[in-house]
C-alpha cells in the first residue's frame, strides 16, 4: 500500500467546497428532472398555443386534449382544432401489446433462467462449467449480430408479427438472468437444502419449496429489470412486430411521430403519448425504486 509522506496538512472540509458540491448535485438533479417536467407541461398544452407561449413555464392554454387524443377520445375536428393530425392511432392497442409481450418475456424468462441457474449452482454434472462459460460468452455478442439470423428464424417458422415472435427469443433465457440468479444461489446457505435432501426430498421439491421462496427478493429484482428492459426494447420489436395490430408502444411511438404532418408536429400529443408510455415504468419506480437502485452494482452490470 502506498504510504503518503506529505507533512501533516489540515484536511478540514472547506465550506465553499461543500457548497460547490451541493450546487453540482442540485444542477445534476435539475438537469435530470427538468425534461420530465417539460414533457408533462407540453402534454398538458394546446398544441396550437405552444408556439406563441413557448417561453412560459406553465402549460400553454391548459387542456387534457392531448391525452384524449392519444387514447382516441377526441373527434377528428376537435383534434385538429387543438393541433393534432386528426389521424387515429391505436394507442390502447399498443399499450395492451406492450403489457402482453413484456409480461410473457418476464414470467417465462425469469422462471426458466432460475431453473438453469439452479442446475449451475447446485447440481453436479459433467460439462457444467463449460456450458456456463458458453452462456456467459454470449454476453459479448452484440445484439445486432444475432438479430438478423433470429429475424430469419422467426420469419421461417411463421411467427412474424405475432406476440410470440417478439417474445420468444428472450423467453427461455438471457445470459444475464442466468448469471444473476446463479450468483445469488451460490451465496445462499445450503443447510436447509441438505437437511431436506437427507429426508429424501428430490431436487424438484427442493427447488420449488426451498430455493424459490428463499430467493424471492432477487427474483423480484430480476423481474423488475427484465420487465423494464422488455418494455423499453425497440430494435427487435421493430424488426418482427411492425404490424399495427401487434406493435408495442416504442414502435408505435416512432410511427406516431412520423404521422404528424411535416410542418407543425403535434408536440402535445407526442409528449402525452411518451408520458403514457413511460408511466408504467415510472409507477414501478415509485413502488420499487429502492430495490432497483440497490440492484445496480456489480451484479447489475448489463
Amino acid at each position: 500500500m502506498t504510504t503518503l509522506t506529505s507533512a501533516a496538512r489540515r484536511r478540514r472540509p472547506i465550506n465553499w467546497g461543500r457548497v460547490a458540491s451541493w450546487a453540482a448535485l442540485v444542477l445534476a438533479i435539475v438537469v435530470t428532472v427538468g425534461p420530465f417536467l417539460w414533457m408533462l407541461r407540453t402534454a398538458l398544452s394546446n398544441n396550437h398555443a405552444l408556439a406563441s407561449q413557448s417561453s412560459s413555464l406553465l402549460p400553454a392554454d391548459f387542456t387534457w386534449g392531448a391525452f384524449a387524443r392519444v387514447f382516441g377520445l377526441q373527434s377528428q375536428a376537435q383534434a385538429q382544432a387543438e393541433g393534432g393530425s386528426g389521424a387515429s392511432i391505436n394507442f390502447w392497442q399498443y399499450l395492451v401489446n406492450s403489457v402482453i409481450v413484456s409480461t410473457m418475456i418476464t414470467a417465462s424468462q425469469v422462471f426458466f433462467s432460475s431453473l438453469a441457474a439452479y442446475a449451475f449452482a447446485r447440481l453436479q454434472w459433467p460439462g457444467r462449467d463449460k456450458v456456463f462459460a458458453l452462456f456467459l460468452g454470449t454476453l459479448l455478442v452484440p445484439a445486432i449480430f444475432t438479430a438478423l439470423p433470429n429475424f430469419l428464424l422467426i420469419k421461417n417458422i411463421g411467427l412474424l408479427n405475432t406476440y410470440l415472435g417478439i417474445a420468444l427469443p428472450s423467453m427461455l433465457m438471457t445470459p444475464f438472468a442466468v448469471f444473476f440468479l446463479r450468483q445469488f444461489f451460490l451465496g445462499m446457505s445450503r443447510e436447509v437444502e441438505e437437511a431436506a435432501m437427507l429426508d429424501g426430498a428430490k431436487h424438484g421439491r427442493i427447488f420449488f419449496q426451498i430455493v424459490l421462496p428463499n430467493a424471492a427478493a432477487p427474483l423480484a429484482t430480476l423481474c423488475l429489470l427484465t420487465f423494464i428492459a422488455a418494455w423499453n426494447d425497440y430494435f427487435w420489436p421493430l424488426l418482427v412486430g411492425n404490424d399495427p395490430a401487434i406493435r408495442v408502444l416504442t414502435v408505435g411511438l416512432g410511427v406516431f411521430k412520423s404521422q404528424s404532418p411535416q410542418g407543425a408536429p403535434d408536440w402535445s400529443g407526442l409528449m402525452a403519448a411518451t408520458l403514457v408510455s413511460a408511466l408504467p415504468i415510472l409507477l414501478l419506480f415509485v413502488a420499487f425504486g429502492k430495490k432497483i437502485v440497490n440492484s445496480i452494482g456489480f451484479s447489475g452490470i448489463k
Binding site: F112, A119, T138, F145, T146, P149, L153, L172
Partner: peptide, 18 residues
C-alpha cells in the same frame, strides 16, 4: 431437466444465429 429450456433458448437464439 433443469437446464433444458435455457439450453434450447441458448442454442436456438444465440448459438445457431451466431
Amino acid at each position: 431437466l433443469f437446464v433444458a429450456p435455457a439450453l434450447v433458448g441458448f442454442v436456438l437464439f444465440y448459438l445457431v444465429p451466431t
